[in-house]
Design a protein around this nucleic acid. Structure first.
Length: 574
DNA sequence: AGTCCCCGCGCG
DNA sequence: AAAGCGCGCGGGGACT
């Protein structure tokens, strides 16, 4: 599998598409049809170097043309211009038209087809600001990036990061095109069970209506407003419930007849407004849920999403994720991804030993560090999030004694952040520097006339940033492991054979209807939609991709990343 | 009417 | 239980 990778520059010139072989090769001018043919017939190792995958790939996919690899200059610029591993970031930072959002034309996002002519600049989900697409700009930016990598402290890691980020850009568009196979029937059954009968128009579902009546009776106020936080809080105070907020973890502590129906009401109205019948019509009208994924959308390098709440699909709706007839789902997630990543980054043999096998928390208990699994869990979370008080903060010192290398890594990251410094993930993504406002708060506290309030504010702000940088290195490196996992898996799935037309997935309507494909991704879990005949092959691919990701990032360091993997018809959590 | 912020809660 | 990271979204209310 060692095909030489060749970079081909792609640019736009009016209606024409310009393609140039490498840095100095001849420029070819193509029509759209010729461009499609060129991509379809390209050598296996070709890497398309283009401004922004969102500008090129939806059109290719619509023509059933897949791209194996690219360099997404926009996303890679964001990484490189900030990375502490780049020796001289000045040329990148000076290229301000590549510095994301500020300048440039509007680029239609993958879900924009319906609203393409309804040009509403403020509709952020449909359009985004674009980077340059002319050949001179693309060529210059690629040269800057290649030089930045070559001269960096860790060229191999950065190359891996840029490749993974760019595959992510392609995959995000593919996931949108493929969609999550969604059973409208199952979704509607869940809604009916939980919420009751659907209202004809304007009203509330029957069970919600009944609960609202119960709550109003308990509040002794037939017209009480239940959806306005301030009004609800006042109504609660009137019947003697002296809560300071209407959040469920505070209300749960109160013993009053209004609490049970109120919590039930809140739970149901949440389901109704977030994932009710309206959501179903808007987001899965045709048996596919097509969220817009935003690679690099989170500061740590995780993906964000826009529209449909893709990253917040409630567990109770997971059964609606349902394979098409003749197909199955492979649902896989990594148990305790982040602490495992931390053990590997820190080369902490003790934590890695506790992580051997399927349950890192039990491993910590077995090592005698804490006495129970729940304690191990909150201790580990507290260590990675920077807890200082409560049970979590109390347990962290035990972890510090048992795993000095791992804890040293996150403690160092926190200290650097508190001091205004920058920290970097394993592969090379760095935090932004503190904002000018942050520095102002710090210097104000050091001035001779500073008040105690100034100093308190500065300490708080420093510690806030310390918790951010502490978590950044772990969350960001975990995102890198997941990106490497996805990239390898995607390549393996693309190599699986297509099925006969008769076995095509009915609701897909694209190349993903005839071949195993990724259907969902959420930080550390994936769902693959697979023709039944290829289930075992695809499951093996999921496992081997995880192994390869581990080796790619961490070499021979002995760390396990065990998968919880199921082959199933629906994605309900077992 | 539009915009912005807060609250609350869903996910990892 | 809400102290301790990162998100998106819907609803209400205050403001323009």
């Amino acid at each position: 599998m060692t095909t030489a990778v060749r970079g081909i520059l792609v640019a736009r010139d009016g209606d024409a598409i310009l393609v140039a072989d490498g840095d100095e090769g001849p420029v070819t001018r193509l029509t759209t049809a010729e461009w499609h043919r060129t991509v379809r017939d390209a050598a296996p190792g070709t890497r398309w170097v283009w401004d922004d995958s969102r500008r090129w790939y939806p059109d290719l996919l619509a023509a059933s043309i897949e791209v194996a690899r690219c360099r997404d200059l926009r996303l890679c610029h964001v990484i490189l211009q900030a990375s502490t591993r780049v020796a001289d970031p000045r040329p990148l930072r000076a290229a301000t038209d590549w510095n994301v959002a500020e300048a440039g034309e509007l680029v239609p996002m993958p879900d924009a087809t319906a609203t393409l002519f309804d040009v509403d600049v403020d509709e952020g989900s449909a359009f985004a600001r674009g980077v340059p697409s002319d050949l001179a700009s693309v060529r210059a930016e690629y040269a800057r990036q290649q030089r930045a990598v070559a001269e960096s402290a860790e060229p191999d890691r950065l190359r891996l990061l840029l490749a993974a980020e760019s595959v992510g850009a392609l995959l995000a568009i593919e996931l949108h095109a493929a969609g999550v196979p969604w059973s409208r029937d199952v979704h509607e059954r869940i809604l009916a069970e939980r919420l009751g009968t659907r209202p004809a128009h304007g009203g509330l579902p029957s069970r919600v209506e009944a609960l609202a009546a119960e709550v109003r009776a308990a509040l002794d106020d037939p017209s009480a407003s239940l959806d306005s936080q301030p009004k609800l809080l006042r109504a609660l105070h009137r019947v003697g419930v002296m809560a300071t907020s209407t959040s469920k973890w505070e209300l749960e502590k109160v013993d009053h007849p209004v609490i049970a129906p109120l919590l039930a009401y809140k739970k149901l109205t949440r389901l109704l407004s977030a994932n009710g019948w309206g959501w179903l019509e808007e987001w899965a009208p045709d048996g596919r849920f097509r969220p817009v994924y935003v690679p690099g959308g989170v500061i740590t390098g995780r993906w964000a999403s826009s529209g449909g709440g893709a990253l917040q699909l409630p567990r109770e709706l997971r059964p609606a994720v349902h394979a098409d007839p003749g197909w199955v789902l492979i649902v896989a997630d990594v148990a305790q991804l982040e602490p495992r990543v931390l053990a590997a980054m820190a080369r902490d043999e003790s934590l890695a030993a506790a992580a051997r096998g399927t349950d890192l928390y039990e491993g910590i208990v077995a090592g005698g560090v804490v006495t129970s699994r729940p304690e191990a869990k909150i201790a580990v979370l507290g260590a990675m999030y920077g807890a200082t008080t409560g049970d979590s903060g109390r347990l962290v010192p035990a972890l510090r004694r048992a795993y000095p290398r791992a804890m040293g890594l996150v403690d160092d990251a926190a200290r650097i952040g508190e001091d205004g410094g920058i920290v970097t993930t394993w592969l090379g993504r760095s935090t932004p520097p503190p904002t000018p406002e942050w520095h102002e708060v710090q210097s104000a506290a050091g001035a001779p006339e500073a008040t105690e309030a100034d100093r308190t504010r500065a300490r708080r702000s420093a510690r806030d940033r310390g918790r951010f940088t502490r978590n950044f290195v772990v969350q960001g490196t975990a995102a890198e492991w997941a990106a490497a996992w996805l990239a390898d898996l995607r390549a393996q799935l693309a190599a699986l054979p297509a099925v006969a037309d008769a076995d095509a997935a009915p609701a897909s309507g694209s190349i993903f209807g005839v071949r195993a494909h990724l259907a969902f991704f959420l930080h550390d879990e994936i769902i693959v939609h697979v023709p039944r005949a290829h289930a075992e092959a695809a499951a093996d691919a999921v496992r081997s991709a995880a192994d390869r990701a581990t080796t790619l990032l961490f070499g021979t360091f002995p760390i396990d990343f065990p998968l919880d993997l199921r082959i199933t018809d629906d994605a309900a959590k077992s």
